[in-house]
Design a protein around this nucleic acid. Structure first.
Lengths: 239, 239
DNA sequence: TAGATTGTTAATCGATTAACAATC
DNA sequence: TAGATTGTTAATCGATTAACAATC
């Protein structure tokens, strides 16, 4: 999944969408496909570091990340030159650089809109240690949920968004509402001042230029699986 | 998000991954990128049909799906020729064909491994009406959860997998466990006879040829968002 | 030096899209 | 016929990967 300005989509992407050109002209342009692999490399490098590894070859990293070694070298070359020929990449340096690029050493305040199962799952998921994000508020349209807590985060009224966003300096809005209200939620997040939106509602959203948008569609992945199942397996009971 | 054999998705692509060539040589080969867009088109066509639309142009469908019209026509051409020049596509026929390809009129039995927040969210999400899937069992390693229910689905002991899978003719395993145990869960799902795996654990899994694997990495999408945030916004409080 | 491994080039592959003839 | 819209071609664009010179 990935998309672009107000329209496209993942395509991702299984892939997600991006609104407006997010890449500063001051930085080298890193291809979207490479950016999407950085978190996977990062995870592998962190694990190797904890295991005491000092240097890692592109071959080994490729194995851990499940990709081609040439792709690893190409991807890492976008980050600059941290490899040593004949030796490999310095694990500490690699981890530091990738963590920096991914904003792992920052702490973006997020709001989750929709205190349902998925919202709760994400709130718990993200409250785990250092990922570069912290969920500072959850909002919901259901008054019976207001004042309750998910983990340590309070559930607020959705009308509180215009106050919450500036007050907590919230940068990212995460939409886990039903699809019918997702566009209006996105509009309100944008007016409230959020700069990026991660949308879990299965609907195509439109946001103004300058607002980053990525989409995750849980049902889509299953439907793609189902497509291939239908081509390789016997039919199950018909519905 | 999306990928290929033995690796992961997002890993592999931010797109999800597929293990082994899943496309029967008897059917026309539909590109992965096209398959990933079919659910989006399908959703739009279903909505238009409910609104009473009889025919739809590639232009309109493109607008609804957030993609280029030429891409829509190209994608639909893989399904066969259902369009009428000068008129558009017959909505009923389009919906039927896409629904068929996506297995929407079938009912694949699924098992969710991991009765945590995410597992519960998915169980509820998928128990919604006709999506071509039904969650027939949830398993968890925690004995205190055994016998409880999420929605109407019972939580079983994870050791029950070898019995549950054949008994319910389960085709798809959904992994929502912590990453540390995900590979062993995948191995056990495969031995139990599952043909496809949808993995939500942030780890690269390996499965035998012939087993379909797709990965969804919730944190990855946020990390990609964070990457672009870091390039366009001011830094938040450092962590 | 000999062996290992990077960084980069260039070939290849696949996906996107503009354009337009076909045709309803 | 005139207008609309598909289906398909071909150009373009971008991503992947094999190969290998550079070099530790």
């Amino acid at each position: 999944m990935t998309e672009r300005a107000g329209r496209s989509r993942t395509e991702e992407d299984a892939t997600p969408a991006i609104a407006a050109d997010p890449v500063s002209s001051l930085n080298p342009v890193i291809p979207e496909a490479t950016v999407a692999r950085l978190p996977v490399y990062f995870r592998a490098v962190v694990a190797e570091r904890q295991a005491g590894t000092i240097t890692i070859s592109s071959d080994r990293l490729a194995e851990l990340a499940g990709v081609n070694a040439a792709k690893v070298r190409k991807d890492l070359s976008f980050l600059g030159t941290y490899g040593i020929r004949g030796v490999g990449y310095d694990v500490d340096r690699l981890m530091a650089e990738m963590g920096h690029q991914l904003g792992m050493y920052q702490n973006w305040p997020c709001v989750i809109v929709g205190a349902g199962n998925l919202g709760a799952a994400l709130a718990n998921y993200l409250s785990g240690d250092e990922r570069g994000f912290s969920v500072v508020a959850i909002v919901d349209a259901d008054p019976t949920k207001w004042g309750s807590h998910i983990g340590s985060v309070e559930v607020h009224a959705d009308d509180d968004l215009p106050r919450l966003v500036p007050s907590y300096d919230i940068a990212i809005g995460i939409i886990t509402t039903p699809p019918a209200v997702a566009q209006s939620v996105a509009d309100r997040l944008v007016s409230a001042g959020v700069g990026s939106i991660l949308n879990f509602a299965p609907v195509v959203l439109t946001v103004p230029d300058g607002v980053l948008l990525r989409n995750v569609d849980l049902a889509l992945e299953l439907q793609v699986l189902s497509f291939y199942q239908g081509r390789t397996r016997e039919d199950p009971e018909s519905a």
